[in-house]
Design a protein around this nucleic acid. Structure first.
Length: 220
DNA sequence: ATCTGATCATCT
DNA sequence: AGATGATCAGAT
């Protein structure tokens, strides 16, 4: 890593650190965003608020939030017990088969390679506006962690490559899992079955299990 | 349509 | 209570 990337990364972390302890109402006021009553119809609101506050530039492109730094930012909803309340969406899964994607050049690895995690109070008893941000931290997988993540990814992608998407269960994967990622249950995208015939299927995404993010929170 | 941001709601 | 399966909003 070059020195300017390293310092830009440190500067991003410093800016995120200044937000630690703020309420969502504070951040919303500073960025000129209204706070919704709850997240039922604004599920991504906290993530979008923090992207706005920190100046993420990726938009909805399938690249890390801070492309020039190679950093992916994620909010991490934490319950009163200090543990993650939800899995973490990583990115859409390429479900169209073909064996061109490798772990090394996959979008999953590009995002997991360097992440800025921002814990957020997600106590459902506390009104959204009063929830506070925790202390952000940068993370990259160590060799052992990357090996597990890579194995999960390869098992899933191997099944997709041979047309066995329909047989993939959400229970596959130690830390990475494949789950529906769609507007509703009748959404469809194209995949290829075991005979190579184009077939419609529910779009899927890769998610990190809470068992994984809890390790990052010190609850391994 | 398909990507991003995720949490909700239900089942076990 | 935890995990799976379903769903909601916005950008391109």
């Amino acid at each position: 890593m070059t020195r300017d990337i390293a310092s830009a990364e440190a500067e991003l972390l410093a800016r995120a650190n200044k937000l630690a302890g703020s309420t969502l109402a504070d951040v919303a006021a500073a960025t000129g965003n209204p706070v919704p009553l709850d997240l039922r119809k604004a599920k991504g609101w906290i993530g979008e608020l923090l992207e706005c506050a920190l100046g993420a530039t990726a938009g909805s492109r399938p690249v890390p939030d801070f492309p020039e730094l190679g950093i992916e930012m994620k909010t991490l909803p934490v319950g009163r017990n200090g543990r993650a309340r939800e899995s973490t969406f990583v990115c859409t899964a390429t479900v169209r088969g073909g064996h061109t994607e490798t772990w090394e050049n996959s979008p999953v690895r590009a995002k997991l390679n360097r992440m800025l995690w921002i814990p957020v109070d997600a106590d459902p008893e506390r009104p959204l506006a009063q929830r506070r941000l925790g202390r952000p931290f940068l993370w990259s997988p160590c060799a052992a962690e990357e090996s597990v993540l890579r194995n999960d990814w390869e098992e899933i992608m191997d099944m997709i490559a041979i047309g066995e998407l329909a047989a993939i269960s959400s229970e596959m994967g130690t830390w990475l899992q494949l789950r529906p990622k769609a507007m509703h249950g009748s959404a469809r995208t194209t995949t290829f079955d075991e005979n190579g015939v184009p077939t419609k299927t529910l779009p899927r995404g890769f998610y990190l299990r809470a068992a994984f993010t809890n390790r990052l929170l010190g609850h391994g």
